[in-house]
């Protein structure tokens, strides 16, 4: 608890404001001036009444990597959902395992995102997250021996890599040991500051 930077500033968080406004407009179902204004007011009231500590993101959004993250996630969810569904009908009970995966980045935001995505993909659920060491402990349904465990570990790390490539800054990528840009990405030498 002492790690939280509680209410450091009452600064307005524009992303939160925007997201809450979008939710409001979607709930009303039509984009009109009145809806957007009312949504802004409600969002402002919510973020003033229940302030959250600011998220130290410091990253940037890469659209291509984002699309890759979302696409791969959708495929994973569909495939794994049916696998778990089939598993429910097998006579043999599943061989589960609890594995610990040490993530490479140390940011809370990416830890949370990775944990959330891993929890949404069927067959793995995060039972414990250790913030200080950046370790996720997952319960994996139906692993097949040691190689299955290694595969599950690799899946989590790949998930984290996709998250980092989608949202982290170059410095954070380098710190996580993922500095090398993908071959398809244009290499821009940073000569000038």
């Amino acid at each position: 608890m002492s790690l939280h930077a509680r209410r450091r500033r009452a600064a307005v968080q524009w992303p939160t404001l925007g997201w809450l406004t979008v939710v409001w407009v979607l709930l009303w179902g039509e984009v009109s001036v009145g809806n957007v204004l009312a949504g802004l007011l409600v969002a402002l009231a919510v973020s003033v009444a229940t302030p959250l500590p600011p998220i130290a993101a410091g990253g940037r959004v890469r659209p291509v990597a984002c699309a890759r993250l979302v696409g791969r996630f959708a495929v994973d969810v569909v495939v794994a959902s049916f696998q778990v569904g089939v598993q429910a009908f097998r006579p043999r009970p599943p061989q589960s395992a609890v594995i610990g995966v040490r993530l490479r980045s140390s940011s809370d935001l990416y830890l949370t995102l990775t944990a959330e995505l891993c929890s949404l993909v069927p067959g793995s659920v995060v039972v414990e997250a250790h913030r200080l060491t950046g370790t996720l402990y997952l319960h994996v349904l139906d692993v097949d021996g040691p190689e299955g465990i290694e595969a599950a570990r690799r899946r989590v790390l790949e998930q984290e890599e996709r998250v980092l490539r989608a949202f982290a800054s170059d410095a954070q990528l380098a710190a996580a040991g993922l500095g090398a840009p993908r071959p398809s990405a244009p290499v821009t030498p940073e000569v000038h500051a």
Binding site: V77, V78, A80, S81, F82, V84, G85, Q87, A88, P93, P94, S96, S119, L120, V121, P122, G123, V125, V127, H139, L141
Partner: peptide
């Protein structure tokens, strides 16, 4: 799955995730 899986965490796999899809 919720009925057949042997322990709590396995049941949870079956409960929360295929449900989302």
């Amino acid at each position: 799955g919720v009925v057949r899986f042997p322990d709590l965490l396995a049941r949870m796999h079956s409960a929360t995730k295929p449900q989302v899809l």
